[in-house]
Amino acid sequence: MAINIEPAVIPHLVVGDAAAAIDFYIKAFGAEEVGRVPRPDGKLVNAAVRINGFMVMLNDDFPETCGGKSMTPTSLGGTPVTVHLTVTDVDAKFQQAVDAGATVVVPLEDQFWGDRYGVVEDPFGHRWSLGQPVREVSPAEIQAFMSGTGG
């Protein structure tokens, strides 16, 4: 029997409390838990949720496997990565994340590139942008805005 492998890119997040992160992602983004693999002490070696129809993997922080260094965004002083969600009701989804405990980083607003867009940070230090296309914008319009001659 052959194993069916489908190519994918899957974010894999390190968090300080993976079980709490799963609960947060369910409340904030309507995630569906796919599974979890706990150690005997309860820390999660691996877990997965499905958000917006796509897989996101996560695990607890294990400094002992990283030269003694914590790898959470909080311990690293932030994150250079933002996970983006394109949704159909961005106002409701953004508010749902905030109500679940996310912090607003970039307020939800209509943007020059045609999306209604905002960014939140989850309680574990990961950033999530949410966007919904609301109007068509040509590359020329975007360039005019970026050069200061439009908008």
Rank of each mutant, 00 (worst) to 15 (best):
M1K: 00
I3F: 11
N4I: 14
I5R: 14
P7N: 04
A8S: 15
I10L: 11
H12G: 04
V15Q: 02
G16K: 03
D17P: 04
A21P: 02
A21D: 02
I22A: 04
Y25C: 04
K27C: 02
K27D: 12
F29Y: 14
F29D: 08
A31L: 08
E32F: 00
E33G: 01
G35F: 09
G35P: 05
R36W: 10
R36N: 09
P38L: 08
P38I: 07
G42M: 11
L44E: 06
L44I: 12
N46Q: 13
G53M: 10
M55N: 13
M55R: 10
M55C: 06
V56L: 10
L58Y: 06
D60A: 04
T65Y: 15
T65N: 14
T65F: 15
G67L: 12
G68E: 06
K69F: 11
M71N: 08
T72I: 09
S75G: 02
P80W: 08
V81P: 01
V81M: 13
H84G: 13
T86P: 00
T88N: 15
D89N: 15
V90S: 05
A92S: 14
A92E: 13
Q95M: 09
Q96L: 06
Q96T: 08
A97I: 04
V98D: 02
V98N: 02
D99T: 01
A102D: 01
V105E: 14
P107S: 10
E109Y: 08
Q111D: 05
F112N: 13
G114C: 10
G114Q: 06
D115K: 05
Y117F: 15
Y117T: 08
G118A: 06
V119N: 00
D122L: 05
F124W: 06
G125F: 02
S129Y: 07
L130R: 07
L130W: 09
P133M: 14
E136V: 14
V137P: 05
V137I: 14
A140I: 10
A140G: 12
Q143L: 14
F145E: 08
M146F: 12
G148K: 14
G148R: 13
